[in-house]
Design a protein around this nucleic acid. Sequence first.
DNA 1: GCACAGTACGAAAACGATTTCGCTAATTAT
DNA 2: ATAATTAGCGAAATCGTTTTCGTACTGTGC
Lengths: 338, 338
Amino acid sequence: MTIKIHDIAKHLNLSNSTVSKALNGYDDVSMTTRELVMKTAVEMGYQPSAAARNLRRGRTDKIGLFLNTSVEYVVDYLSGIISGAVMTAQGLSKNLLIYTIADNNPNQLLKVCRAGEIDGVILFSTHYDQNTIDTLLADNFPFVVMGRAIQDERVSYVVPDYYTGSYQATQYLIDLGHRRIAFTTRPELTTANEARFKGYMDALVDAGLEYDEALVAPTFIEPDSGVQATKQFTSLDKQPTAICAFHDLVAVNVMNTLTKLGYRVPDDVSVMGFDGLRSGLMIHPQITTMAQPLPLIGQRVIEIVNQQIDNDVAMPIQETVPVELVTRQSTATILQRC
Amino acid sequence: MTIKIHDIAKHLNLSNSTVSKALNGYDDVSMTTRELVMKTAVEMGYQPSAAARNLRRGRTDKIGLFLNTSVEYVVDYLSGIISGAVMTAQGLSKNLLIYTIADNNPNQLLKVCRAGEIDGVILFSTHYDQNTIDTLLADNFPFVVMGRAIQDERVSYVVPDYYTGSYQATQYLIDLGHRRIAFTTRPELTTANEARFKGYMDALVDAGLEYDEALVAPTFIEPDSGVQATKQFTSLDKQPTAICAFHDLVAVNVMNTLTKLGYRVPDDVSVMGFDGLRSGLMIHPQITTMAQPLPLIGQRVIEIVNQQIDNDVAMPIQETVPVELVTRQSTATILQRC
DNA sequence: GCACAGTACGAAAACGATTTCGCTAATTAT
DNA sequence: ATAATTAGCGAAATCGTTTTCGTACTGTGC
């Protein structure tokens, strides 16, 4: 029912080839027929079949991003990235496609890539394993890892500067006069988590402060994991005057937990977040945070994948993008407490 | 480089037809060859080309949802819906694809549909106009409108019961003893907004309360539009003791604004939300809200679109799904104030 | 008038799968 | 033993584009 290139050709007494060439800007077609073809194409509402086009061209001009629904909080993180990615993709005449996959569908990503539904893929940290990476490398399929510094020279990645971010966050609290600064992050020994922890440690050491094991607690991607950590901190004899959380949603949770326990933020305890998510803005007091340049990350992953698609890539690109302190209302000088 | 059906055939001394039939469950292939084919298919890592498959079959088994990046808050709403939609789609062997489009690309939706990239599309309220609907209808392309009750007998939709939700929200506040209840919603005269307003009005009237124009203010999808509305309410001589917002993000903003102005929630003013978004949970006090059954909405839109794809649809399906009062901490009886 | 270049178009071969149809060989019925 | 059926496979058409290659025609230079 939808109209095909053949319909235009028949209608104008032309061949399929000429119509196709007119539409695709080939130069062996006269000005007059070209204009005629383009005019009737829009009149008849012609839209080339994606399937036929992809089959013949061997590419789709689409870049994929995978979302599994179990971790709803990541959308908060991704929405900032996506806006940057979409802008960039549009400039390159590419499309960003988000695949929503069920949680029990482990290797759908590989299927989609092998099936040629997309030309390249962005691997978000929640969403890959070593097998995926090995297979993509073996297939020579364009991909870039986002948000984690893979220890593999063959893969490209874009990652925020967790170390410096964590260092500066801690230093900022120290500059505010805090001396007992609690820290909470994911316990898994990934490069990201290790960088965060090292930034915290180094800032303490450089300021001549002592590291206290009791001031470190594990939290997870789930925001309510902040409850446990907060209770651990507040039950100490020597309570911290500031808490540094590894992402804003946990920070929000920590702050709410503190409030429920009767502490005032930032008067009694300062709370520091990470990532610069929208949720940190929507609360009172708003969360001071180390903001990631989310749109920039989106831009770079698209650009890097696109280079691989165009085959003009000499070496894998491994990039660290800077994070930035955003001072808001959940942190205060320690003097304010008295 | 990727392996094709022909490679398997050659490797087993079979024809393409037989291999294809073995893989697709045709019955004119012997048990032994079938098993042989399937085994070597996985061994060789075969994955059928999506383009070739779609071209031949004339369908993609994909359902599309469009996201424009300018309105970041909708992801909060959509993430609940998506999880329901994905589950349902998986049961039907369909895939849910999210198209992220740049804001300056108005009719990309129609292009994607006409190009046959997807078999059906979910029209989210922020994302269609009359022309889109007319064209889809003319093309006989499967689609369903989500979140708005279109006044058009030819189109299917799934919409939450805004009227009853708004009525019950208001009634709940009345039952708590409130007599001056402010209301804020989008000013555009859509069916949704009118239903919300009518629910509020009817609840007031049924309780014998008087409608006061000063207690109604416009807010928009942008959360910070709550600031203006809140200031309008608090500057009144006869201030409201409860504020009913049309979605949770605005409610959160109203609550924060009240806090900044020195009011306590719920002690001084009760705040009521709508939608049941995650953000309403992540704040202290948590927002009392009329929750939409988001996963159910996702389930139904997929099922309805799928029926259209399978062509077994007699009449357009227009569904209203119930909303539910979720009592949390931002509302309290008026007695508590004394 | 002849060779030659250039212009504008069409025929046909891909792309990789699915599916119809026909054919052989083996099995069953008569 | 012959006819009829069936099981198992292959040839080839098809989906709608893109792109290569060939060709007819026009115009130019000598």
